[in-house]
Structures are given as C-alpha cells and as structure tokens.
Amino acid sequence: MSAISRSREKWVLLFPAILVLSLITVLPFLQTVWTSFTDAEITAREQQVNWIGLENYIWALTDPDFLEALGRTMYFTAVSVGLEGVLGIAVALLLNQKFRGRWFLRVIIILPWAVPTIVNAVAWRLIYHPDYGALNSLLLQLGFIDSYTSWLGDPDRALNMVILADVWKNFPLVAYIALAAMQTIPGDLLKAAAIEGAGAWKRFRSITLPWIIGPMLVVLILRTIEAFRVFDIIYVMTRGGPSDGTKTASFYVYQEYFSYLRSGSGASYAVVVAGISAVLILAYYAGIRRDQRGA
C-alpha cells in the first residue's frame, strides 16, 4: 500500500469520529462565540438579534464584580489544587508503606471521589450547619472552639470551607495516580539512596518526587481546569453567598443566562472563562514539554 493511500485511509477512518466530535463540541463552541458578539436574549418572542461586536466583552472585563469573581476563582483554583496535591501525595506515601490492613485503606480512600459532587456538597453543608453540624459538635467537644460557629456565614471563611469540601472530594484521584506512579519506582533506587545516607525526606525530594512529577502534572492540570470552572459545589453549598463571597466566574455565566436571561452576555462570560482555562492548559503543557526535554 502506498504512503498516499495509507494516509487517505487514515483520514477516512478518522472521519466519523471527527464528525461526531465537531458536532458535539466544535459547532456549539462556535455558536457560543457567535452569540457572544450579539445582544441575544432568552425570550419566547421574536427578537431582533444585533451584532454588537466586543461590547459584551468590554462590559464583562470592566465589571468590578466579575473581576473580583475571577480573582476569587484563581484563589479557589490555586488553593484547592495545591491542597489536593499535597494531601494526595502524602496519602499515597502512606499507602505505599507496608502495614496491616493496607488493602482496606486503599479501597475506601476512593470513596470521597466516587460520591457525586452534589451529594458531597449537600453532605458538607450539613456538616457545616451552624446549629447542628457535625463540625461544630466535634470541635466543641475537642475544645477547639468555645461555642458553635457559623462556617458558611462569613464571606472569606465560607470560600475556604467550600475549598475544604472540594479538596476532600478530589484528593483521592491525586492520591491514586501518585500511588500508581510511586509503585513503578524501582526498589533498588530507594535502597541505594538509603545506603548513601539519604533520610526519608531527602529520598522523597530527590527520588520519589522527580519520578512521579510527570503523572502528577497531568492530574494536576486536569484538576486545575476543573477547579477553574467550579460551579455545582458552590451552587449547592452557598448559592454564591454570603455577600457574593463564594461567587466564582462560572456563576456569572449561570447568572447571565438563567437569572438575567441575557444569552449574548452570558456567552461572552463563558468564552472568557474558557479562554482563561485554555491559557492555563497551554502554560502547563509548555511546562511539561520543557521538563521532558530537559530530562
């Protein structure tokens, strides 16, 4: 078979998949971008949709509330992904040691991740309840607080508590990938380091961490992209409150579309959020490429 016909065959075979992918992702995306340049609204009546160029975008990017929300979203992403990374690797290190009942721990650790986001959010909201939440009860009994506190009542604290709930749900994924990567480390490597005098921390820093950094970057990118678009956990736990303290960028998309029925404007917010996600992806990608080449 000649090279040309083999190449053509490749495209013929790929074509159905490309077609489906385009219909599901590319076309809706293009439609959203188109809408973002108009003043379209959600209405059952006939409407005249006008092209208004960048007006939606200028509005979005000069809206102090939205810019605040973007900052908040960056904070949420950085802290939650950071905590997931640290906690995930720590738990993986633990699960990599030999001890009785390790298999059991390894199995149940996946449970938080397996729970649907909404269920997780509802459960944590109950735990945080100011009057009968388990967190208040536990901390009071342990003597860490004097009286029942409102965890979701203060804007800054609420955001951190939502981050905790999100980290809880997602760290098992990071832990599993880290554990799988750790198990591919040749035993001799760690033994050699031990003989050379490296303590547990040095062994982790010099051998384990560099070894697992590849898969870790991949999973952390995934988590970053997801964290940046966070919506459901916020919607269920706080609806964006208190005092807009937990309103993230995605919330604005929801708001513009469903609450204010401005689809053109909503589309522009959506494109901004997607755009920033894309920048994050590219930055990570460049980081990995550089890391691989340097190795």
Binding site: P186, D188, L189, K191, A192, A193, A194, I195, E196, G197, A198, G199, S206, I207, P210, W211, A295
Partner: peptide, 19 residues
Amino acid sequence: DPAKRDIAMVFQSYALFPN
C-alpha cells in the same frame, strides 16, 4: 541504619538516580 554502617552497595540494576 544502612547509612551509618559505612558501607557502599552496587546493585544489579545499577540504581542510578534518573533525574
């Protein structure tokens, strides 16, 4: 501890630190 026995070891797999 192995580190304090004043020994050195050469492994079958060489165990060189890849990074």
